[in-house]
Simulated assay, not measured.
Amino acid sequence: MEGGDVLEYLFYNTIGSIIVSIIGSYRKIGGGKAFLISFILNSIIGFVIVILSKSLKDSEDEKQIQEESINLQREAIEEQRKMNQKTDASNMTEQLERLAKLKKEGILNEEEFQKAKKKLID
């Protein structure tokens, strides 16, 4: 290549890289990276890489979907926790009622009832 050919190549490559960087600034790759890639490799290759990168809107939508998914998971965990607490309280109430019934029927004396009740509560 002659000196004039090299300068012409650099000129057109720089112009192409600037155009690619403008397009890249609207994508996740960013304008600076797009410029460097297209200048070092070639404007056409840089353009292809930029087009294949995700757009900023797609990235934002993806992030929003992930946040919504996390929120739904947290809500489901909280709901399950509440249900478990209700079940535990219900089971304890039923067991205390059974102990009281056994005491009333004379199967358990006061000391046995208090020990069983303490064990259940703790």
Rank of each mutant, 00 (worst) to 15 (best):
K28Q: 13
S43E: 12
I70G: 01
E112T: 05
I121N: 12
I44M: 11
K57H: 08
I18N: 01
K33N: 13
S25A: 09
A34C: 03
R98V: 08
I15T: 03
L72Q: 14
L41D: 04
N71I: 06
I18D: 00
L120I: 01
K54G: 07
G24N: 05
E79Q: 14
I23L: 08
G24Y: 04
Q66D: 01
K101P: 00
N42G: 15
Q95F: 11
Q80C: 05
D58Y: 13
T87A: 13
I23T: 01
S43C: 11
G46C: 08
M1P: 06
S59R: 12
K82Y: 10
S59Q: 12
L102T: 03
I23Y: 04
M92P: 00
I15C: 06
Q66E: 07
I19K: 03
S38L: 04
N109M: 06
L108D: 01
N71Q: 15
L99A: 06
E78I: 11
S69F: 13
E8W: 13
E75F: 03
D61V: 09
S90E: 15
I22K: 00
Q64L: 14
L10Q: 08
D88G: 03
D61Q: 14
Q66G: 00
L120W: 03
N109L: 08
Q114I: 10
I40Q: 07
S21Q: 09
E97S: 12
E111V: 09
F113W: 09
G3Y: 15
G106E: 09
Q95K: 15
E67Y: 06
K82I: 08
N91H: 12
E97G: 02
E105D: 12
L41C: 06
K101M: 08
L56P: 07
M83W: 11
F35R: 03
F39M: 06
G24V: 04
I70C: 00
E8K: 15
K117F: 02
I22P: 00
L7W: 07
E111A: 10
N84W: 10
L10Y: 10
S25C: 12
V20C: 04
K104G: 14
I40A: 11
Q85E: 13
T14E: 00
I40G: 04
K103T: 04
Q95T: 13
G32N: 10
E78P: 01
I40H: 08
N42F: 03
N13L: 14
S59A: 12
G106F: 08
G4P: 07
S38K: 05
M83P: 00
Q73R: 13
T93L: 15
K115H: 10
L36P: 00
I49G: 01
V20A: 02
L99K: 04
L10S: 06
E60F: 05
K117H: 02
Y12P: 01
Q85F: 07
I22E: 00
F11M: 07
M1A: 11
Y9V: 05
L120H: 02
G106P: 06
S55M: 07
